[in-house]
Simulated assay, not measured.
Amino acid sequence: MASELRYTANTQTAQLHARYTGTGHADVTKYEWMTHQHRDTSSSIVGHPALLQYLSIADGESTARTKFELTERMLQPCGPPPPKEDD
């Protein structure tokens, strides 16, 4: 019974990670986690017109310009990735 429960939990976790890429896992680096967080925040602002308008007013820019800048920032929101360590 316990092994069935563990298998079900692992399957559900795998399905969650497949559906939502930003949920992370045990091997996620700090850079990857922060990148997912920044992209999620930017896409949420772009996807909600009221938030986009609020941010554009605060920045003193047009909503189209703010949307463009947020979309461009999604490419590398935390800068270039750190060099990988070879084992």
Rank of each mutant, 00 (worst) to 15 (best):
R65V: 11
S42R: 04
K30E: 10
T29L: 01
L51T: 11
R19P: 04
E61Y: 11
H36E: 06
P49L: 04
P80V: 07
Y7T: 08
P81K: 09
P77W: 00
Y7E: 11
K30V: 10
G60C: 09
H48W: 04
S42P: 02
A18V: 01
A9Q: 12
A50L: 04
A50R: 03
G47D: 05
E85R: 15
M74Q: 03
T35H: 01
T63G: 01
M34E: 09
A9M: 11
M1K: 10
T71G: 00
C78N: 04
A58F: 15
A64Y: 07
P81W: 10
H17A: 14
M34G: 05
D40A: 09
G79I: 06
H36T: 04
L51C: 12
Y31C: 13
T23Q: 11
Q53A: 14
T11P: 00
G79T: 02
R19W: 10
M74H: 01
V46A: 06
R73G: 01
D40R: 07
T8S: 13
T71D: 04
T11W: 12
T63N: 07
T35N: 02
M34Y: 10
G22V: 00
F68N: 04
L5C: 14
L75T: 07
K84V: 12
M34H: 12
Q53G: 05
A58M: 15
S62C: 08
H36V: 03
G47I: 01
T71S: 06
E69P: 01
S43V: 08
K30C: 13
F68R: 03
H48F: 01
H48G: 05
R73L: 00
E69F: 03
P83N: 07
G60I: 14
P49Q: 09
D59V: 12
R39N: 08
H17V: 08
V28L: 01
S43H: 10
D86G: 08
T63W: 04
V46L: 05
A2S: 15
W33H: 05
R19G: 02
N10G: 01
P81M: 12
L16S: 06
R6N: 14
E69D: 05
P81T: 05
E85W: 09
K67D: 02
T29V: 04
M1V: 07
L5W: 06
E85P: 06
T29A: 00
S42V: 02
A2Q: 14
V28R: 06
Y7R: 06
K67Y: 07
S56P: 14
V28Y: 04
K30I: 06
E4R: 09
R65P: 00
S44Q: 08
L16G: 11
M1C: 15
R6E: 09
G47Q: 02
S56V: 15
T35L: 00
D27E: 08
S62L: 09
Q53S: 15
K30G: 10
D40Q: 10
R6P: 01
E61R: 15
A26F: 11
K67V: 02
T35C: 02
H38F: 12
Y31P: 04
A14Q: 13
D40G: 14
S3K: 14
S3D: 15
E85V: 08
V46T: 03
P80C: 05
I45R: 01
L55N: 14
E69M: 12
T8I: 10
R65M: 09
P82L: 11
D86R: 14
Y31G: 09
